[in-house]
């Protein structure tokens, strides 16, 4: 049990990536049209983090995985119906606003507070996981802020791989410029890892995993504590859809030779 780790995965929920999004501005600031109607999924990068966490926990007996998620209770419940079938975890739901526009500092404060209060969590064995960015806010700052609040100064972002060694140290691969990975070795927990896609395939839906998770998920959801997020002086001047309609020339009657010649000229031009 030398390498038993306590992994807390911070994972938000985001609109299903296939949905059509349209911003609107309401009395409480910007949001998405029909946001509560759109089907939601676990944030894709955070989902990678969750699968990696489960994989790591499975390989290191005695480990445990918590999933901390902030969002409207009803939406969290809906997303858990799918997420719970993937891997074993204990849900820590926080009933709060949906969407990408609330301030990340406030989100981080609420998350850190919830994590610090987790019963049974050994902070010395903590690996704080999450996506390196979210598909809503896309800021890539929440996890760092949570890490700072928990006093963790070994942090890694754009992580694609972790190898936990027998001595408790681990090697991490982080995405950096140029399509390369920076390789680091950390002496051990605690640490923060913001995941990119990792290398694991999405786990199959396992009904038994789902049922086991649900035993704790539903009571947790019923007790989810509400959270309001302070704006921290953040004000939106405008929120809009990009207008990038181009005039497209559709070329149907050129031979491959002619097209190639045109492309060569285009590639070479400044």
């Amino acid at each position: 049990m030398a390498n038993a780790v306590h992994i807390v995965v911070c994972a938000g929920i985001v609109p299903d990536p296939l949905q059509t999004l349209e911003p609107i501005t309401g009395p409480n600031g910007p949001g998405l049209k029909n946001e509560m109607v759109l089907p939601a999924v676990l944030d894709p990068w955070a989902a990678s983090a969750l699968y990696e966490a489960a994989n790591l926990a499975a390989k290191n007996p005695g480990s445990k995985v918590w999933l901390v998620s902030l969002g409207p209770k009803a939406k969290l419940q809906q997303v858990m119906m799918t997420a719970a079938q993937k891997v074993p975890f204990e849900l820590v739901p926080i009933d709060g606003p949906i969407g990408g526009f609330p301030d990340a500092h406030s989100t981080a404060a609420v998350l850190a507070e919830s994590i610090a209060a987790l019963p049974g969590l050994d902070r010395d064995r903590l690996l704080l996981f999450g996506g390196w960015e979210s598909a809503t806010r896309g800021a890539g700052v929440t996890l760092q802020l949570v890490g700072e609040r928990l006093g963790i100064t070994d942090q890694f972002y754009g992580v694609d791989q972790i190898d936990l060694r027998d001595d408790g140290s681990f090697e991490v691969l982080e995405r950096v410029e140029g399509g390369k990975h920076q390789v680091s070795v950390c002496a051990g927990t605690p640490a923060v890892l913001g995941w990119a896609t990792g290398n694991l395939a999405e786990p199959r839906n396992n009904p038994q995993t789902g049922m086991a998770n649900m035993r704790t998920i539903m009571p947790a959801l019923q007790k989810a504590r509400p959270a309001t997020l302070a704006p921290n002086g953040l004000r939106y001047v405008s929120v809009s859809l990009p207008k990038q309609q181009r005039t497209t020339r559709v070329v149907k009657d050129l031979t491959p030779d002619e097209i190639a010649a045109e492309l060569v000229e285009w590639i070479g031009a400044e």
Partner: peptide, 11 residues
Amino acid sequence: FYRQRVEAVLT
């Protein structure tokens, strides 16, 4: 925001 799908100006 939302993976390059919504543009916002903030202060």
